[in-house]
Amino acid sequence: MKNEMLTVTEAAARIDAGDVMVIAGDEALLVQLPKGAWIGGTTVYFVTENGGAVVRDKLFCTTFAKATGATPRHVDVAGLPTISEGYKAGGVTMIMIPAFSVAHSQFAVDGQTYPGLFDQPLAGWITGVHLDDIGKKAPKVFDGSTGVGYDEGAVLLHVALPEGAQIDLDILNIFAQGDDAKLSFTFEDNGFSAKTAMVNGEQVKLADYITDNKIDTRLPLVANYSGALVNVSIQSVDTETGEVKFYAPVVAGVEYRMANALGSYSQAFAQGAGDGGTGQYSCNCILNYLYGELEGQRTGGFTGPVTFGEIAYILLNQTLVRMDINDAA
């Protein structure tokens, strides 16, 4: 795969030449692109070769050089369970969903139940806008086959690859579960918010509990799914309403522990990223960008869009999703 920051003119020329691409950038740029084998999503935050930056005049383009074909499509909320119906044998599917949409919530809660979802690698992200524009502009996704942008549903790029291609899809999560029993939570219901939680067998008012215990809300809740650590990030704590909002849904009955504190967020992330990432597809969470102070900082060889959520089969928070495609062994 090839990752590049391109002008609209340069990206359009690649599309017209038949390149298979996933594209990220400002809506004003994406609407100018011609029809072709691509999907796109809005963001103005990126990790570039020179470090994290806000970029409004160029598009971040990942080209699937090994692709033998690709089918872009848009599905509405009702069509989300059909994601796997477009899978190409031995291929990979890319996905983008607008932040704050019904599809965002539906996929987060129900996605893992969709038929055949895990039958091939599914990678992508939740599209966003500049933080100053939240509530003013809607995040968008673009179906390259029509050039149309949507603020609801999902866009998919079903990519065909040569026989035997090896796809490595993984996440970088710098957080581990803490061992403090006072910071272990279970919830009665699935959802993006909660007012109560169980701690040591007792129900607590969650907003008050977080405030009274001076819990660092930059740290996520971490669940252990058969050895895979999955984060749920805290969006806000409102002691007046008693509501705590999350960037991804908590799941009823699952134990969540507050992540261990980091000595230095930025150093921990840089150490976790290491020197890898060159030539791989990746996307990184806006919370890592903000809390890790990534503006102007590099993340090894990883470059890509900064997002309002990451997808590696399921919705993730405060992670870096990475994918590599290699020839048959």
Results as ranks from 00 to 15, higher is better:
G153F: 06
H74R: 09
V155R: 04
L157E: 11
D133C: 12
A24V: 08
A165K: 07
I325Y: 06
T241G: 06
M323E: 00
D143P: 08
G300C: 00
N50C: 02
L221T: 02
K137H: 14
G263A: 08
A223K: 04
D189K: 14
G91E: 11
L320M: 15
Y291A: 10
T319V: 15
V31D: 05
D189A: 10
A312K: 13
S105A: 15
G301S: 03
K137G: 12
A67L: 10
P139V: 13
Y247L: 13
F246A: 07
T146R: 01
R14Q: 15
G147E: 11
C61R: 00
A70W: 07
E293M: 03
A312F: 02
G242F: 00
G301M: 00
I174E: 07
S266D: 07
A268R: 10
V250P: 03
G40W: 09
D212N: 04
D110Q: 13
P34L: 03
R14N: 14
G153H: 05
A194E: 05
Y114E: 12
A248L: 08
D208E: 12
K88M: 14
V159G: 13
G116T: 07
F118A: 15
P305A: 10
T93M: 14
K195N: 12
V77A: 13
P162L: 05
V159S: 15
E310P: 07
P121K: 14
